[in-house]
Write a protein that binds this DNA or RNA. Structure first.
Lengths: 214, 214
DNA sequence: GTCTATACTTGGATAGAC
DNA sequence: GTCTATCCAAGTATAGAC
C-alpha cells in the first residue's frame, strides 16, 4: 500500500502515480524542472498531458513529491547507520563518521533520480516547492550537525557548520561527475572520509602509504 | 576598450552591453536561466525586450558571455598566485595549496554574479552554451589537476581526480550558503584548506588547538 | 483513468519606424 | 540605439466526453 515510505513495493506492475513519479524524477534530473514539459513526461509513461492531473494537482506538486521521497531515502540511510552502531560498543569517532559518509553517498547515488534534485534544482525551485520541502531538509541537516558536534567536541560551532557545509558540498557534487555504472561510489566514500579525517598532507592511510614527509 | 578581459573599466558610466551583461548575470544567478525572461532583463536596464538584440544575438549568447567572463576571473586568480610564487623560493606544498584555495574562493565570491553560473546553471544549460564554454572550464581544471599532482606526488591519478572534484565541490557549494556580506570568505578558505591538508581528526592547526585525541 | 479539445499565458525572436 | 508591434511556438491547466 502506498505509504509515503521510500521503499518501493509495487504489488502488480506499478501504479500510475508511481510510474509518473519515477519518470518525472528522471526527467527533472536530466533536463531540469522548467525545461521538462508535462507533455514529455506524459509521453514517457504512455499518457497524454491532461491525464497527469488525475494523479497530481500541479507540476509543483510533482516536484515536491520527488524531493520528499529523495530526502526520505537520505534520512533512512542515516538512521540505518545509527541503528547499526546502537548495538555495538561505543563507536570510534573516525569509524562512525566514515560509516555515515558512506551511507550518505550510497543513498545519494542508489536513488539518484530522487535525491539529486536536492543538489541540482532545489535552489531555483518555485517558492512553494522550497517551502514544502525545507522542513525535511532541515531535519536531515540537524542530524549531521549533531553528529559532527559529537565527533569533534573541541570545535566551535562556527567551524562545525562550515565543516558540515564543506563536506556536504564535496559529497553532493559527486552527483554531477560520479558515474554510478562504474561502481566507484565506495571508493570515493573511503577517499573522502580519509581525506576529511586525516587530511592529504601527512602520512595517512591511503592507497599508497604516504611517506609522512612533505 | 572592451577587451574580453574580466577587469571592468567603464570609461563613462557603462556601455549598454556591459549593463545588460551585469543585469543578466544577477538575474540568472537568482532566478535561473529559463526562469529569466528577456523582458525582465530589459526592464532591469531600462530598455525593452526587442532592444536587447542590438547587443546580443540571442539569449544563449548572453549566457555564454556571462559564463566566459566568470571563468576568466577564475583563471586570472589562479595565475595571480602562480606569479606570486614565481618570485619566491620553492614554495612549501601546504602554503601553495592554501594560497590557491584562498584565491579560488575569493575570485568565486568577489565576482559571484559571473562565476556562480558555473556551479548552478552550467549543467542544465542549452547544449550550445555548454559546448561554447567547456574549453575554458577544461583549461581551468587542468591547472588544478597539475597543481595537485605536483603537491601530492605519491598519489595515483585516480585519487588526484577524486580529491580535486571533492575539493571543488566543497569550495563551489559555498556559493549557495556563504553570505559574502559577512566577509567570512577568508575564514572558510583557511578552514577548508587546513581541513584538506591536515584533516579534522588529529591535532591540527585550527581555531581551538586540538588535543590530538578523538 | 485516460482521452480530446481548447482556453489562457508567456516567452524568444524579427521588422521596421524613429 | 531604442521603440512598437507582431509572429510563432510552447507550456500549464481545465472541461467534458468516453
Amino acid at each position: 500500500m502506498p505509504t509515503a515510505t521510500a521503499s518501493s513495493n509495487p504489488t502488480e506492475t506499478q501504479s500510475g502515480r508511481e510510474r509518473i513519479l519515477a519518470a518525472a524524477a528522471q526527467r527533472f534530473l536530466e533536463a531540469g524542472y522548467v525545461e521538462t514539459s508535462l507533455r514529455d513526461l506524459a509521453a514517457d509513461v504512455g499518457m497524454k498531458a491532461g491525464s497527469m492531473y488525475y494523479h497530481f494537482e500541479s507540476k509543483d506538486a510533482l516536484l515536491i513529491a520527488v524531493l520528499e521521497r529523495g530526502m526520505t531515502f537520505m534520512v533512512e540511510a542515516f538512521e540505518g547507520v545509527v541503528e547499526q552502531f546502537a548495538a555495538a560498543d561505543p563507536p570510534d569517532a573516525e569509524r562512525r563518521l566514515t560509516a555515515h559518509i558512506t551511507a550518505h553517498l550510497r543513498a545519494l547515488h542508489d536513488n539518484r533520480a530522487f535525491t539529486a534534485g536536492h543538489v541540482t534544482l532545489f535552489r531555483t525551485a518555485p517558492e512553494a516547492v522550497r517551502e514544502a520541502v525545507l522542513p525535511l531538509r532541515d531535519d536531515y541537516e540537524a542530524r549531521w550537525t549533531d553528529l559532527l558536534a559529537d565527533v569533534l567536541p573541541d570545535r566551535p560551532i562556527g567551524d562545525l557548520t562550515m565543516l558540515r557545509l564543506g563536506l556536504f558540498g564535496a559529497m553532493n557534487a559527486s552527483i554531477e561527475w560520479l558515474d554510478t555504472g562504474r561502481g566507484t561510489v565506495d571508493r570515493f566514500a573511503r577517499l573522502i572520509a580519509a581525506q576529511f579525517w586525516y587530511g592529504v598532507g601527512s602520512g595517512a592511510p591511503s592507497n599508497t602509504a604516504g611517506k609522512g614527509k612533505r
